[in-house]
Design a protein around this nucleic acid. Structure first.
Length: 289
DNA sequence: ATGTCACGTACCACGTGA
């Protein structure tokens, strides 16, 4: 099963890149971010072409900004739009959608940018991440969080750490919030696969940043242990960032092996009723590299 | 000194968000 995530920076503008990419890469699950379309406009624009290709669609969008979606051709159930009781700015925005696809709880997320570390938007970003953590924690343990997290997990994930001092995406509170999400037992599958490689997913359109490979790794696939254990391949599709009319983000592609039988349970066992089988106990924090 | 793109509104340019 091939699971992917891509911040397309306007689904409408990206149609000429998105549809050929689906045909080329044949993903089973596609998490999209920054669709920038209402649900009605998304279905009007892409409903037909996606149905032809065998995809069911879960969308959560708005007219101008944000917007997320999940496309799946391995089933799409129990769709939840947004983060129930999550924070807004000031009103809730279309930044998350989740669904069960091929037995995995899939979350497509577009984490707030944060703008500047002294802004209200930055505090909103941190609160939003905490709410996402609670939502994932309350869900099944077969889980995968995919999307634009607008955080570079480590200094190795930015082209020049010095250039980002004092900016969002690299501050300790942001990284801590991401680490707390990962502390549910979520593995960063790209970094696991490429521990020492220079690997980015986003390059600013300006100043030939892509051509010089001056980017950031802010689009992540975070997989719970049972899913991370099935990873057969994990890579960034830089080809999709090249050529005419690309998004400023590249897709992340993850291939999973077949699921083993059984052993379905909650992400975090209730304290009053601990899971005693102990067969696939989740670590309290990700093991060190 | 932002070498870009996309958004809406409003017109052939600008403010905003990223």
């Amino acid at each position: 099963m091939r699971v992917t995530t891509w911040n397309v920076n306007s689904a409408k503008q990206r149609v000429p890149r998105l549809l050929p990419w689906l045909d080329q890469r044949q993903p089973d699950v596609v998490c999209l971010q920054e669709t920038k379309l209402t649900d009605a406009a998304f279905r009007e624009l892409l409903g037909g072409p996606l149905e032809e290709r065998g995809y069911e669609v879960a969308v959560h969008g708005e007219a101008q900004w944000n917007g997320v979606a999940i496309l799946s051709r391995v089933g799409l159930g129990e769709v939840v739009a947004g983060i129930p009781d999550g924070p807004g700015f000031p009103h809730p925005e279309a930044r998350a959608v989740s669904a069960t696809c091929g037995g995995i709880r899939v979350h497509s997320v577009y984490v707030p940018n944060g703008r500047t570390p002294d802004s209200d938007h930055y505090h909103y970003k941190l609160a939003w991440l905490a709410a996402l953590r609670e939502q994932v924690a309350a869900g099944p343990k077969e889980a995968i969080v995919c999307g634009d997290v607008n955080i570079a997990p480590a200094d190795a994930d930015v082209f020049d750490p010095a250039a980002y001092v004092g900016h969002t995406h690299v501050t300790a509170p942001e990284r801590d919030a991401l680490a707390q999400l990962q502390a549910l037992g979520l593995r960063d599958v790209i970094r696991d696969r490429w521990p020492d490689k220079r690997v980015f997913t986003y390059w600013d359109y300006r100043a030939g940043m892509f051509h010089q490979d001056l980017g950031m790794r802010i689009d992540l696939v975070l997989a719970s242990a049972p899913v991370a254990g099935r990873v057969q391949a994990a890579w960034v599709d830089r080809l999709a960032r090249k050529g005419t009319g690309p998004s400023d983000h590249a897709p992340v592609v993850v291939d999973l092996d077949e699921a083993p039988d059984g052993d379905i349970g909650p992400m975090v066992p209730p304290p009053s009723a601990p899971v005693k089988r102990g067969k696939t106990k989740l670590p309290q924090s990700p093991p060190g590299q």
